[in-house]
Computed example of a mutant assay.
Amino acid sequence: MKEFFGLLKKGSRSALWASIINAVLAVIKGITFFITGNVAMFAELMHSIGDSANQLFVFIGSALSKKAPTDRFPGGFARLVNLVLLGAVLIVGILAYETIVKGIHHIMEPPGSGSWFWLNISVLGIAVVLESFVLFKAMKEITGDLGKDIKGFSIVTESFKNVGDAKPATKLVFLEDLVATVGALIAMIAIVIGTYTPFIQAEGYASVIIGLMLFYVVGRIFLDNAAGILGVSDEDMEKKIGDLVFEEPDIKDIRTLMVIREGDELHVELKVELDPNKTVGEADKIRDNIEKKILNEKGVTEVIIESDVDDHVQSWNNPKTSK
């Protein structure tokens, strides 16, 4: 139990914050829905329940994935976070389906104009503020992983540019809270339209739109984490490490280079070609220098390097010779 709580300290903080805030929002939205019966509020209630449960699982999964390898699992637990996220998206998928069904029912059989306008608007306004807070924390986590001092509005623009390279847990929080913030705004607009115009089906359409956005998150997260479980290669990091290896003047060629992403971790397997006149001791020193450089890269936890003599057949594009 002590080890478990120790691992929880290493979990994704953005996921923990998101889970707590969405749980609070789910309670507030649930009370509001039972008072008002507003279908747009129901969609937002389903969204907050799904997000809270999801992000709690993500927090626990991201923490447990940091567990050290054991005799039974010598490969470690890095891919556990991908497995947890695959389970988490099932919850979102079910709630997205319920949200769409409720919205279609509202469109087909719209009730009379509802009351409690200001209560609905106030609750959704609070939701926008709190979801935006969590979204911004996820943005800061994404930009923080870039290793640059990014401040101000650049945090927003850079997070959108680099969300594809974010950690699995952070990416899920980012996508879910982006959809949640936009969804709350759509629900507010729909309530205004349904209250002050004859278009009373607006709230039903809003519910359907929110449900479809949730399905987008399901698809995106499912594909990313299915690839993560299989062990997806990181092509951008392969190119970066390839250029890094060729900074060593004694490297003649790279025969093979693989960078496999497992959860938040990167595993590097590399085979380089050296001058045949190099001694064993010199070759070991070259490999040690390369290993230190690669381990300094963000997310790299394991490096396996083999070496062989130069076969004079270029296998990898050498940036020094291509200039």
Rank of each mutant, 00 (worst) to 15 (best):
V218L: 07
T36D: 01
N120T: 02
A18R: 00
L85C: 07
S52N: 13
K252H: 04
E297M: 12
K161C: 11
V156S: 02
P69C: 05
S115K: 10
V218M: 04
Q314E: 13
M237V: 12
N82W: 09
T70Y: 08
K293M: 08
K292M: 06
D51E: 11
T301L: 07
F222T: 15
L95P: 04
G75E: 11
N317F: 13
A184K: 06
N120F: 01
V39D: 01
H267D: 10
D284S: 12
G219A: 13
I20H: 00
I91N: 05
D311E: 15
N317Q: 12
M41N: 05
G228L: 02
G204Y: 01
L8H: 08
T256S: 14
L86T: 08
A53L: 15
L146E: 09
F199I: 14
K10R: 13
D234A: 14
E282S: 06
V313P: 00
S62V: 09
V259T: 10
L172Y: 00
D311F: 13
D264W: 03
S307K: 09
G112D: 09
K67A: 06
N38M: 09
E265W: 03
G30T: 04
H267P: 01
S62Y: 06
H267R: 13
L230Y: 07
D284H: 15
E176P: 02
A23G: 15
G30S: 08
P111D: 03
Y196L: 08
A127S: 15
K29P: 09
S322H: 08
I186Y: 02
K323Y: 12
M188D: 03
P110W: 04
V272M: 09
V217H: 02
V81L: 06
A226V: 14
F246M: 08
K320Y: 12
N277K: 14
G231Q: 07
E203N: 07
N82S: 15
H106T: 11
I94T: 13
E248S: 13
F59W: 14
L212D: 01
P276S: 08
F42D: 00
L85Q: 10
G183E: 03
L135Y: 04
I35L: 11
F133T: 15
M41T: 07
T279F: 12
K137C: 03
L257I: 14
L185C: 12
A96I: 10
V156E: 00
F73V: 15
D308H: 10
L230K: 06
K137A: 09
I193Y: 00
L85R: 05
V208P: 00
D165P: 00
L172P: 00
E273P: 05
N296R: 15
V245T: 06
F246Y: 13
K137D: 10
E44Y: 06
L178F: 15
V84E: 02
G76R: 05
E44R: 03
G183N: 02
D284L: 13
T32E: 03
W17C: 12
I94V: 15
E141M: 08
E269N: 11
G144F: 06
K271N: 14
G211R: 00
R72D: 14
I294E: 03
V123Y: 00
H105R: 11
Y97C: 11
L16S: 05
Q201G: 03
S52R: 10
N225W: 08
L295E: 09
